[in-house]
Design a binder for these strands. Sequence first.
DNA 1: GTAGTTGTTGACAACATTGTTCATAGTGTA
DNA 2: TACACTATGAACAATGTTGTCAACAACTAC
Lengths: 231, 231
Amino acid sequence: MLSTTTNKIVGNTGTCEVGGVSTSRRKPKPRVRRDAESARALILEAAEKRLVSSGPSGIRLQEVAADVGVSHPTVLHHFGSREALVKAVCSRALASIHRELIEAIRASSGDEAQLSAMLEAVFDALSTSGHGRVLMWLALEGEPFDAVDVRLADVVDATHAMRKVKRHEKGLEPKTREDTAHVVVLAALALLGSSVLGRTMLTNAGLEGDDAGPRFRAWLTRVLLRQLDGE
Amino acid sequence: MLSTTTNKIVGNTGTCEVGGVSTSRRKPKPRVRRDAESARALILEAAEKRLVSSGPSGIRLQEVAADVGVSHPTVLHHFGSREALVKAVCSRALASIHRELIEAIRASSGDEAQLSAMLEAVFDALSTSGHGRVLMWLALEGEPFDAVDVRLADVVDATHAMRKVKRHEKGLEPKTREDTAHVVVLAALALLGSSVLGRTMLTNAGLEGDDAGPRFRAWLTRVLLRQLDGE
DNA sequence: GTAGTTGTTGACAACATTGTTCATAGTGTA
DNA sequence: TACACTATGAACAATGTTGTCAACAACTAC
């Protein structure tokens, strides 16, 4: 769309020789040359950092390029357009999130200690890599977001099946699937929320200390377990 | 900082007369003139809509001006700079949030039905006006955010005092303030989170229907109450 | 009516950002 | 070594955004 007018071709070479001999005192600036694959990987890595810190709309070609140590046309060369880069980095991040969450959830088989471990693992997946922030950015900006097929429904179903068995063993009356879904949603909201603003919330509530986060999640584990298995 | 060089003064009037007589076929475009106060109010109102939908960094002077129906220098005239406008609209939104939350929380005195009403009121305050999104934007972008002195600690203290009395009346052993704080933080995370992506989460968990949100919050009320008063 | 005050606006400048072009540098291959 | 191929970067173009300025226009005071 841009540059519709005619283009005067000047052809100023890198080691320009405007007048005659000198003026070409520029160091050739040794170029590093990577194969396309590793170049794309480096760019995606840098772009993901920007995605975490500034969101999709905060990704700037020049900043990403500078982070990698290349010029911004190189980024465009490898991705075609800024939008394609954003889409690529979002897809990559979402796929990574999906993988991490599946991994974190799969390890749990409904045990008491394992539920705690699972919550910590999920929180860790959302928190350390900043992927919780990515999910929140995408939710706020209304990006496609479709790829977040973490399918809470699957988590609900798995949890509900385990819950049914456990309650039957204990002689407790069964609970509805909706109840289980509410438990899962609450856990998801709590973990995602605290991965974004957990520290702020906790200190704002008067809970100082480095272990305020773990203590809150341990407490959350007990509440969820009591809701799942109790009464 | 801009325009440091000399400024060639051309002084082309609105009804320009370049050559001689004609070419001045422009309607004078009847200006509307407001007093500074209402102009500022209109601009802030338009800017807040942009704040909710696009976040602080998504506020554009020209867009805000177009929404109001004025030119963008008018916005600059009233606020000095874009940054000042952003700061003003954020302060206004945060003050509004603070007021709404205080109002929503104050109505509750620990009763069972009143806790439910309070949660609904808080959720409503965060959801309908988009103020939950504002809080999340500010948290993600790391804006000053200081004005969010909703002071969860105060809510915790009030809740804890009521809780102590109630548990004593029931003959239950007292709970720690940390436990109360955890309950409040969980409620805050759940309400704020669901105000931003509640619909997404619920449908993703397999909970369809228009009343999925109210039903989840009603369930949350029971869980919180059971934690506060139970055992 | 005249003059002063002030909200308002078009034109412009400076800068940022995205995208394009093309010569060059680096890599692999015959 | 000669050649093809491709990643790279400097220069450029186009557009968007913020900020400046002088003049205009509406209103008030006299």
